[in-house]
Design a binder for these strands. Structure first.
Length: 269
DNA sequence: AACGTTTGCAACCGCACAATT
DNA sequence: CAATTGTGCGGTTGCAAACGT
């Protein structure tokens, strides 16, 4: 069956946007607001695919974007968030005001990867590249997943929480005298081994269901397909940190769903 | 100056999934 | 409830600028 293409590509412009196109898009969105990207190009007089318009607006034309170089603080925050979230660029971008997922993704690939490699850290695992030679007990976990200093007020899932964990020791190698400044308490002068993170963690911003029947249908579909949609499991709408860090929160919809999944899996497995 | 290589980033593509009909 | 539509995401590509020889 397949779906129809998002637009008729035959007569569409591709490639770099011109100033005139930018102006048309900005003018139209100022006037009518965002939304309905499919019909926007025609309405705005643009020979562009709706997706292309959306991308251009989201990544470059939005007035709230912060342009310019990344600061050292942003670098470290990206590294920390990546260690926690992986390649969830949109989630990472959501924690950096004025930065876009595309910008962060590019910055990661061109700068931060190299930076981590120069530190001897695998950018994919956030562990020392030669870690395989290190006894596990000597290696401190790089992930917030196991960072007990992270605290959430799970009684208030709708309230944005500012979390100030103690600086987390990321990596320490046995016998590395150059890194003796790294301590488990995080008091150190070595910026290379400690990240002082102030994470602003919001609730999983689940989309509201216009129809309760849709929600039920999607929940039911889990049973029939065995797949867990992002809305249900908090992947796209915002990672459920309660689940990710091993907490359980009765008032968090995702935790309740994960309960459902656990029950469902226990029936199946 | 000319050419080849590397780097940085804007934009595209395909896919997944929520929303709607 | 199946089919369809619209949106958003992550991976990848293409190209211009910077750099090296």
């Amino acid at each position: 069956m397949g779906r129809s293409p998002c637009c008729e590509k035959a007569h569409m412009n591709k490639g770099a946007w011109t100033k005139e196109e930018d102006q048309l898009l900005v003018d139209y969105i100022r006037k009518h607001g965002e939304g309905c990207w499919r019909s926007l190009p025609r309405a705005a007089g643009l020979q562009r695919c709706g997706k292309s318009c959306r991308l251009r607006w989201m990544n470059y034309l939005r007035p709230d974007l912060k342009r310019g170089n990344f600061t050292e603080e942003e670098d470290e925050l990206i590294i920390k968030l990546h260690s926690l979230l992986g390649n969830k660029w949109s989630l990472i971008a959501g924690r950096l005001a004025g930065r876009t997922d595309n910008e962060i993704k590019n910055y990661w690939n061109t700068h931060i990867k190299r930076k981590l490699l120069s530190r001897g850290i695998d950018p994919n695992t956030h562990r020392p590249i030669n870690e395989s030679t290190i006894p596990p007990s000597k290696t401190t976990t790089p992930s917030l997943l196991h960072d007990e200093s992270v605290q959430f007020d799970l009684a208030k899932p709708d309230q944005q929480q500012t979390v100030k964990p103690e600086p987390t020791v990321l990596y320490r190698e046995e016998g590395d005298n150059n890194n003796n400044n790294c301590t488990s308490s995080g008091t150190t002068s070595d910026d290379d081994c400690v990240l002082n993170l102030e994470l602003s963690v919001g609730p999983a911003t689940t989309r509201s269901y216009r129809y309760e029947s849709t929600r039920k249908a999607n929940l039911d579909s889990v049973e029939s397909t065995g797949r867990w949609g992002s809305e249900l499991f908090g992947a796209q709408a915002g990672v459920c940190l309660c689940c990710r860090i091993g907490f359980h929160n009765e008032s968090c919809p995702n935790c309740r769903v994960s309960d459902a999944r656990t029950i469902w899996e226990s029936k199946i497995l």
